[in-house]
Lab assay of single mutants.
Amino acid sequence: VTLFVASYDYEARTEDDLSFHKGEKFQILNSSEGDWWEARSLTTGETGYIPSNYVAPV
């Protein structure tokens, strides 16, 4: 399981994006799509795309 933590807050801009807060942890589901990764929030359980430059490895 690949875990990352949010370095910043992010507000979703499309329905496919995932909003999150600094400190929130994610399981990365797919990182092969470039700068936007499909992730599941371990806080909310929601799945969506997050900007990879807003998160760091745990």
Rank of each mutant, 00 (worst) to 15 (best):
E24L: 03
Y8L: 10
T47G: 03
T47C: 10
S7Y: 13
S52F: 07
D17A: 15
E33F: 12
G23T: 02
E33K: 14
S52T: 06
G48L: 04
T2F: 11
N53M: 12
A6L: 01
F20V: 04
S52A: 13
L29I: 11
G45T: 03
S32M: 12
N53D: 09
S32T: 12
V58N: 06
E11W: 09
S19C: 05
Y49W: 15
K22A: 11
L29G: 02
N53E: 10
F4Y: 15
T47S: 09
L29M: 08
W36Q: 06
A56S: 13
L18K: 01
A39S: 02
G45M: 07
W37N: 01
L18C: 04
L18Y: 04
S31A: 13
R40A: 04
Y8N: 08
S32P: 10
E46R: 15
D9Y: 05
A56T: 14
T44K: 03
R40I: 11
D9E: 06
E38K: 13
S7F: 14
F26W: 02
G34N: 11
Q27F: 13
D17K: 15
S52P: 07
E38S: 07
P51D: 05
D16T: 14
V55M: 09
F26D: 00
Y8W: 12
S19G: 07
Y49R: 14
V58K: 05
D17Y: 14
A39D: 01
N30K: 09
G23F: 05
Y54S: 11
A39N: 00
F26V: 03
V55T: 04
H21K: 15
L29S: 04
S31N: 12
S41K: 12
N30M: 07
E11I: 13
E11Q: 13
G45D: 05
N30Y: 07
S19F: 02
I50D: 01
E11S: 10
L3C: 12
A12I: 01
S19A: 06
L18Q: 02
S52G: 07
S41D: 03
S19R: 04
Y54H: 08
Y54N: 04
A56F: 13
E15F: 10
K25Q: 12
Q27G: 02
F4T: 03
I28P: 02
T43V: 09
F20C: 00
G45Q: 06
I28E: 01
P51R: 07
N53K: 13
S19L: 02
E46N: 11
A56R: 14
E15A: 13
T44V: 02
D9A: 08
P57M: 09
D9K: 04
L42T: 06
F4A: 08
E15G: 13
T44H: 04
S52Y: 08
I50K: 00
N30A: 08
P51I: 04
S7E: 14
P51L: 07
E33R: 15
P51T: 01
F4E: 00
W37Y: 07
E15C: 14
D9G: 06
E33G: 14
G48I: 03
V55F: 09
E38Y: 15
A56H: 14
S7G: 08
S7V: 15
G34V: 11
E33V: 10
G23E: 03
L18W: 04
S7N: 14
G34Y: 09
D35W: 10
W36V: 07
G23W: 05
D9Q: 05
A39Q: 00
E38Q: 13
D9C: 12
R40K: 11
V1W: 13
G34F: 09
V58D: 09
F20P: 00
E15R: 11
D17N: 11
P57A: 09
T43D: 10
A12P: 04
A12M: 04
P57S: 08
L42V: 08
F26S: 00
D35K: 09
H21R: 14
T44D: 03
W37R: 00
I50F: 01
T43P: 01
E38C: 15
T2Y: 12
V55D: 02
E33P: 10
K25T: 12
Q27A: 09
A6N: 00
D17G: 15
T43R: 13
V1I: 12
N53W: 15
R40F: 09
T47Q: 09
T2N: 11
D35I: 10
V55W: 03
P51W: 08
A6D: 00
K25M: 15
V1G: 13
F4D: 00
E11H: 10
I28V: 09
T2G: 11
L42A: 05
S31K: 13
S31D: 13
V58Q: 08
I28H: 00
R40Y: 10
Y49N: 08
S19I: 01
D16C: 15
Y8V: 09
S41L: 07
T47K: 09
A6T: 03
D16Q: 14
S19Q: 04
G48T: 02
Y49H: 07
T47F: 07
R13L: 11
D16Y: 15
R13G: 08
F4P: 00
L42I: 09
I28D: 00
F20M: 09
